[in-house]
């Protein structure tokens, strides 16, 4: 790994640091959470609010399901050469009552996961760019 600086793969979607959180919004009218952020209209059919507050989502949840990617996805995905398969999990957040997809940290395979298993959010490299290393959120089994 190089000594390039770290940068978020997608700006403003999560906090940086040791205990990262996804950044979403919460409707001021009905309390519905949104990730990615929703700032113009609430999608709850019983709510016509257009006021939202930015919130950090829970950084732990439980596995809804999981899989892996055995083949290199097409662009805009930037794959390392040679391509290394990676694991993917859908994790349910209790307070937000929603499920969020993400890669699982390197070294964890589908054989290590089970529906209902507790997971936490961490940051890990998505790919290395010319000027920096792009990091994104990934799910990691709670030790």
């Amino acid at each position: 790994m190089s000594d390039k600086p770290l940068a978020a793969a997608i700006d403003g979607w999560h906090t940086l640091g040791e205990q990262p959180h996804l950044i979403g919004t919460r409707c001021c009218g009905c309390g519905t959470y949104f990730f990615p952020k929703q700032t113009h209209y609430c999608k709850n059919p019983d709510c016509d609010s257009n006021e939202f507050e930015e919130v950090e989502l829970s950084r732990t949840g439980t596995v809804w399901s999981y899989t892996n990617a055995c083949y290199k996805p097409p662009a805009p995905f930037v794959a390392a050469e040679p391509f290394e398969p990676y694991t993917i999990a859908a994790v349910q957040l209790e307070k937000e009552q929603m499920t969020v997809l993400g890669q699982v940290v390197a070294g964890v395979s589908t054989a290590d996961l089970k529906v209902g298993m507790p997971m936490e959010l961490v940051l890990e490299t998505l790919h290395e760019a010319e000027d920096d290393i792009k990091v994104t959120w990934k799910w990691k089994p709670v030790a």
Binding site: S65, Y66, T67, P73, F77, I88, L101, G102, Q103, T110
Partner: peptide, 19 residues
């Protein structure tokens, strides 16, 4: 976004299957 993060169509089918 999902392609950028490495999530393709078979990902979704596989999540349902594994569940």
């Amino acid at each position: 976004v999902r392609f950028y993060l490495g999530i393709t169509n078979p990902t979704y089918f596989a999540l349902y299957a594994r569940r």
